[in-house]
Design a protein around this nucleic acid. Structure first.
Lengths: 170, 170
DNA sequence: TATTGTTATACTCTATAACTATA
DNA sequence: TATAGTTATAGAGTATAACAATA
C-alpha cells in the first residue's frame, strides 16, 4: 500500500476515530445535561457562556456569530429564543445603528450558574478523570495547536461574512 | 475544598474548549466535503464506512446503531435513505427473523471510495498537519484512553434496558 | 415477556435567499 | 456598495411513542 497524502497511518487513524467518538459522546452527554438542568441547547449555552465571559456581558451579533460558526439567520433564531425567555436583551448600538448589542440578563446569569456545575462535572468525569496530569497537558497542548492551525487556515467556506464570489452576475 | 469536583483548572478548561472547537470545525468541514463529493451526511458516511470495515460488508441494524449513538428510528431513517440510493440492501436474517441484515452494495463501495480521499485529506490538513509526530501520538494516546473510559462509563440515562457488556475493539 | 425493527408524528435546528436599514 | 441583521421558508435530522413480528 502506498502512503500518499490522502492516507493516515494507524496512529493517526486511531486518533481521528477516537476524536470523533469522544467529542460526539461528550457533546451528546453535555447536551442532555444542559437540556435537563436549564432547558438549553448546546448552542444556546455557548452563546450565554460567551456573553458571561465578556466584561460587559455584551457582544454584537456578529461577534457572537464568530466562533460559533453559524449562519447569521441561525444566530438570529437562537438569540430570539434566548430573548423570549428573558435570558438576554437585544438593543441597537449607538455607535453603529446597524449593530445589535446582545446583553446577558440577570436571569441569564442565573441559568448559566444553574447549569454550569453539572456541565463541568460531566466534562471532568467523562473527559479528564481518565487522564493523568501529563496526558491532560499533552491533550490540551496538541488541541490548542490544532485550533490555532485551524483558525489560521482559510476555511474555504466558513468565512465570517464574506459573500461568495459566485462568478458572474450575482 | 479549594478545587471541588465541579471545576476545571486552566489547562483543563483550555483543553475542553479546544476540543469543542476543533471537533466542531473538523466535523463541519468534513460534512461539507462528504456532501459535495458524495451527497452523504456524516452519519450516512459512518454507516457505510462501518459496513465497509466489516469482512462481510454486512451488519445487523442493532450493531450499526451501537457506536453511532442513535435512536433506532433514526437508524431506520438513514438506512432507508441509503437503500433508496442503492448503497445498501436490507434483508431479514435467517438466523433470527427479527433481525435485518444491512449489506453494502458495489455502488455503496464506489461512493465510499469516491469520498474517502477527500475526507482523509481534510483530516490530514486540518488536524494532523499542525502537529509533530510526538504530538500526534500524545493526542491519539490520550483520546484513546478517554474513549475507553467513556465506553466503560454508564451513560446514566441513555440506557433503557441496554445491558450489552463487552466493549468491542475499534 | 423481551428483543428487533418500523411507522407516525412532532419538533429543533440549520441554511439560503430576499429584504430592510445604516455606513 | 458594503455591512448588520431579520424574515420567510424549506429541508434534514432526531427523538418518542405506538406498533408488529419473532424469540
Amino acid at each position: 500500500m502506498a502512503t500518499p497524502d490522502a492516507s493516515l497511518d494507524p496512529t493517526e487513524l486511531d486518533g481521528y476515530l477516537a476524536l470523533i467518538e469522544v467529542s460526539s459522546l461528550l457533546r451528546h452527554t453535555v447536551e442532555q445535561q444542559l437540556r435537563d438542568a436549564g432547558d438549553l441547547s448546546y448552542v444556546q449555552f455557548q452563546l450565554l457562556a460567551r456573553l458571561g465571559d465578556s466584561a460587559t456581558g455584551s457582544h454584537r451579533m456578529t461577534d457572537l456569530a464568530d466562533g460559533v460558526v453559524y449562519s447569521r439567520s441561525g444566530l438570529t433564531y437562537q438569540a430570539q429564543l434566548l430573548e423570549q425567555r428573558g435570558l438576554v436583551t437585544r438593543a441597537p448600538s449607538r455607535e453603529d445603528e446597524r449593530s445589535i448589542t446582545v446583553t446577558l440578563t440577570d436571569a441569564g446569569r442565573e441559568v448559566l450558574a444553574t447549569v454550569f456545575p453539572g456541565h463541568i462535572g460531566i466534562v471532568r468525569s467523562l473527559l479528564f478523570d481518565a487522564l493523568s496530569r501529563d496526558e491532560v497537558e499533552a491533550l490540551a497542548g496538541a488541541l490548542t495547536r490544532v485550533r490555532a492551525h485551524m483558525r489560521s487556515t482559510p476555511p474555504r467556506s466558513a468565512a465570517p461574512r464574506r459573500r461568495k464570489a459566485a462568478g458572474s452576475g450575482s
